[in-house]
């Protein structure tokens, strides 16, 4: 770990000022990912700006019936908040599918959005990685890529975004509120993370000097028909090979609104409006779910070891939609896939 300066921001504006003053500075809240990366010398910030005491820990109802979640709300608090459990159980479920209880207690909502890939080459500073050292090359491309991306990859990077929470937020149509030197802006969560293209060192579209202040959930929470299914190499405490967030509006067996997002398969949570449109107005049947899966997985490509993820994703999508349709969401506590 390198030496670094430490500042504690007194308010959001102060944090923005401190960021602007030191291009090598990083914000720290829970630190569950950043500290690990610093220990491995992957992140070498010149300064840590501690924002953990800023007043961004509230969960409030918005005028239109949605919820505004402060960026510093701990993941656990969010997952167990009564309004989340009742109105956005998909989000609660996705959060509880991730990490461990100890990590969720520390990790903040904003930090969860900022967590970096777990590609082993990104973590190992002795191997080439375009994300860590732009232009160095990608070791995963022809290396150990069993759990790498199958969608939205580029010739420079096949890393995945490891977040579970973001997958549910993408499906729910969440917004990200951002404070910046010149005021505020709001973007859709699906536009917050980016594809690697030729700049894989950039995970998100957050500009320099910008800070996430809140996540906003729209009113519709799909509390009746939803499921979050995470497929991994052991039954807990592992990153997703594939995860699926599914949410349906059902009238009888007919699908109204449908939401579908994938995790563990791309540089960002993967959502396809086309796939969702194809479900609308259809009966909730495995065939229709399979067709939506095909649309969502359109353009999926495999490298040497991750071809199985394409087929696995298709199966997982159909299963998750079935769980959602039958109102039997995947439990994150039981030692069994429903």
């Amino acid at each position: 770990m390198n030496n670094f300066q430490y500042s504690r921001a007194s308010d959001v504006a102060d944090a923005i000022r401190l960021l602007a003053a030191d291009p090598g500075a990083k914000l720290i809240a829970g630190g569950t990912n950043l500290i690990d990366l610093m220990k491995e010398n992957v992140e070498r910030p010149s300064r840590l700006i501690d924002i953990s005491r800023l007043p961004l820990r509230d969960i409030e109802e918005t005028a239109d019936g949605g919820l505004r979640i402060g960026a510093l709300v701990p993941n656990s608090d969010l997952a167990y908040h009564p309004l989340i459990e009742q109105r956005y159980p998909l989000l609660a479920s996705a959060i509880l599918a991730g990490a461990s209880a100890q990590l969720r207690n520390m990790a903040s909502v904003g930090g969860n959005l900022m967590q970096r890939t777990r590609c082993p080459y990104f973590y190992d500073t002795t191997t080439p990685c375009n994300k860590r050292s732009p232009g160095a090359g990608c070791s995963a491309m022809d290396g150990l890529n069993r759990n790498h991306a199958i969608l939205g990859t580029s010739t420079s990077c096949i890393a995945t975004n490891p977040s579970d929470m973001s997958v549910a937020l993408a499906a729910l149509g969440a917004l990200v509120h951002i404070a910046r030197p010149s005021g505020q802006r709001t973007i859709a969560l699906t536009d917050f993370h980016r594809l690697p293209e030729d700049k894989p060192h950039l995970d998100t579209n957050l500009g320099s000097g910008e800070i996430i202040t809140a996540i906003e959930l729209p009113p519709h929470g799909f509390a009746r028909n939803y499921s979050y299914l995470k497929i991994r190499d052991r039954l807990s405490y592992a990153f997703a090979l594939v995860s699926v967030a599914a949410a349906l509006e059902l009238e009888g067996n007919a699908i109204g609104e449908a939401r579908l997002a994938l995790g563990g398969v791309a540089h960002k949570p993967w959502r396809s409006l086309e796939a969702e449109a194809a479900l609308r107005g259809q009966a909730a049947t495995p065939d229709h779910f399979g067709r939506a899966a095909d649309l969502l997985l359109q353009g999926a490509t495999a490298r040497s070891h991750n071809g199985f993820k394409i087929d696995l994703a298709r199966r997982a999508i159909v299963r998750t939609l079935m769980q959602a349709a039958s109102a039997t969401p995947q439990s994150q506590a039981h030692k069994k896939i429903a």
């Binding site: 777990r118 082993p120 080459y121 807990s236 405490y237």
Partner: peptide, 14 residues
């Protein structure tokens, strides 16, 4: 390349 107990998997309680 998996020299840590996050990526070197052993059984967890589940």
């Amino acid at each position: 390349m998996n020299a840590n107990i996050a990526e070197y998997h052993i059984p967890v309680n589940a």
